[in-house]
Design a protein around this nucleic acid. Sequence first.
DNA 1: TAAAAATTTAATCATTTGATTAAAAAACTT
DNA 2: AAGTTTTTTAATCAAATGATTAAATTTTTA
Lengths: 275, 275
Amino acid sequence: MAKASRSSRKNSAPRQPGKTSQRTTRNTGQPTRPASQERRCTSTARKASRKDPPSPGDLSTEEKIMQAAQKLFTQNGFAATRTRDIAKEAGINLALLNYYFRSKEKLFDIVMIDNFRQFIKGISIHLLDNANTIEEKIQRIVTAYIDFLNNHPDLPIFIINEIRGNTSRITQQINEEVAPLRAHMFRQLREAGRQGKITPIDPFHFIANLIGLTVFPFIGRPILQRVTGVSDQQFRAFMEERKQLVPIWINAILRGNRPPDNGAAGHSDKNPDHV
Amino acid sequence: MAKASRSSRKNSAPRQPGKTSQRTTRNTGQPTRPASQERRCTSTARKASRKDPPSPGDLSTEEKIMQAAQKLFTQNGFAATRTRDIAKEAGINLALLNYYFRSKEKLFDIVMIDNFRQFIKGISIHLLDNANTIEEKIQRIVTAYIDFLNNHPDLPIFIINEIRGNTSRITQQINEEVAPLRAHMFRQLREAGRQGKITPIDPFHFIANLIGLTVFPFIGRPILQRVTGVSDQQFRAFMEERKQLVPIWINAILRGNRPPDNGAAGHSDKNPDHV
DNA sequence: TAAAAATTTAATCATTTGATTAAAAAACTT
DNA sequence: AAGTTTTTTAATCAAATGATTAAATTTTTA
């Protein structure tokens, strides 16, 4: 879900790390905030890397919190996730969560951006690889997508939920990361069409088809399984099948497609990098 | 979104409609609850129809509340929707909302079921129509779907969000309503395959493709528009185009599909009505 | 118009929940 | 060991929110 109003509370000046205060015992003031606390509002704060790994073996506290947050936020959405639950999931206490991340919103934003990066990273590699034909490229993208989503099945819904109704900085972030991909794919599609390799197709339709056939099953999984009556195990098997089938189908679409009578919005060329 | 814990509060015995109490002025006790209040927990309560239309012209209060709830729940999910906002949207006050529907959960469940009914109603008509070939059927379903979703663009995400993580009565409801559709479509697909009209395809893949190509664009709209850079207006135009294109593509898939080497889960016949 | 029903007002509860704080305890550094 | 940092404990806030209630007001109905 969605989250609605994500800002309201008092927002008093954050306690300052070195500000002291009369302590009776040892500590000479507030605990110095960890590196990540630089992430709080003060715009001038440096964009420090998350944390220098303190203990070598297992996860740092900060990472534990982030993983727990990622899990719960992704599973339940922003509004339905309690910070207390995140703390419990991370195996730490609530105070520490706020100590590291200041607020639920901040934590969410960080997780959100991380999520999205992961989401497009796997694809962008194959997309930007110029060496292959479109067919090969599709093949690889579909496989990469499905493999990735098998490990992060909740991610698509999460991203969709949080993107709609959030016009803030995050959206912008995403835009910047996605722009080169879009440009590249548009170019290649146009070219293939011109060379007669495929029936010309608008990039919108192409991407809608590619994603629709590949990631939709994960999004619509609860409904799909219900409607078709397949088990979890069968679902996984079907998704394995689709690694082969979807590229075949896409190719069938790219060939069988009727020439664009182009009744509606001419899109292909204008607006090459709008948004 | 999701909603997480949807039951916790005290749940004291609901005030009883006729229980009186010392009133100073005219009313001889609590206002008699409207018909809809029968919907509260007491399992023996009759499943009364929503309300006998009180005022002829415009919507009854109950309907106003339900419409407002439908709008906000669908837009924001359960957890992120405030009952106060629903009341405001409906143009009534919070007390009246609880007076009619007892609780947020009850209201939600009702809206949810209504939503889902709408969602499958439009499709089931065409699905169950035996007179047509598969091609015609697909054509009609796609058009009906897209028309419907143009008017209820938020519904798919909403339904998906609320189905996952909700194993309760609603899921059951849905199952019952969907079962005959599934059976019918499976039969027809199998038959067409046997008659050689199409390359045999597992119902799972078929439905995943059909829904993926048709309703996914509405689900993924925020991302799709961002990635492809199309405007709202263009989006609508593209969806109009897809009314023609998707059936063509589906047919291309049904023909171009390689024969099922059937490496994975054999599905088609066993489990004809599992779930 | 008088009784009944629907609706509003406004106050109030009880919880939940995000967030903060101070002090103690534990863990680590040097 | 001494000092520093991290983490916990536990209490507490303040705001949001779902829900309830009693009485007043309006609307409908008979």
